[in-house]
Amino acid sequence: MNNNKINEEVQTQTILTLDDDFSLIKRFNDGDESAFRTLISRHKEKVRNLIYLTLGNTDSIDDISQEVFISVYRKLNSFRFESQFTTWLYRITVNKCRDHLRKIKIRSIFSPFTTESENLISPEQVPEDYDIKLIVRQAIATLPEKLRIPLILKDFDGLSYQEISETMGVELGTIKSRIFRAREALKKILTPYKKELL
């Protein structure tokens, strides 16, 4: 009996949360600017962290996250309520990150003196007081973009394979495979640091 009650509460909470995003969107579309402010405050940190991990540095987080929410602001009236708002939001974020990475790549072709990406510190040089979690972040940053993004969406943001598939516009099986390959690659990278990590 108690278990059923708890399940119902959780379910109601989930539905409420979803409805909450949708109702905020509806309110915004009806002209309530404060609803958009609530949407931002609810999702801004997820977006910022996704950008942070996808890019591997903090340089452009603010600019890109602002661009993401400006796009949301402009396109919110065309939101069709067929998927979760977060899926839609993450898709916009991932696309903005990809655009940014593409720009960096093009810039590096024409200008060899652009900002270098953060290199992974060698195992021998790791100081005792070093932030171990930084090593993991740096290791993720070294992964290819197509492996890195599904891994972050799964293990950091906790999205399901289906949601990741929708976010990235890639088939479910491919996502499953990419997440596995990302973990394998990360395991290889982090093996030398096993002592520091464990």
Binding site: R37, N49, D62, K133, D155
Partner: peptide, 15 residues
Amino acid sequence: LVNGIKPLPEDHYFE
């Protein structure tokens, strides 16, 4: 390990 990555500090002036 991935799950345990420390998130960015909250940006209160973002909005």
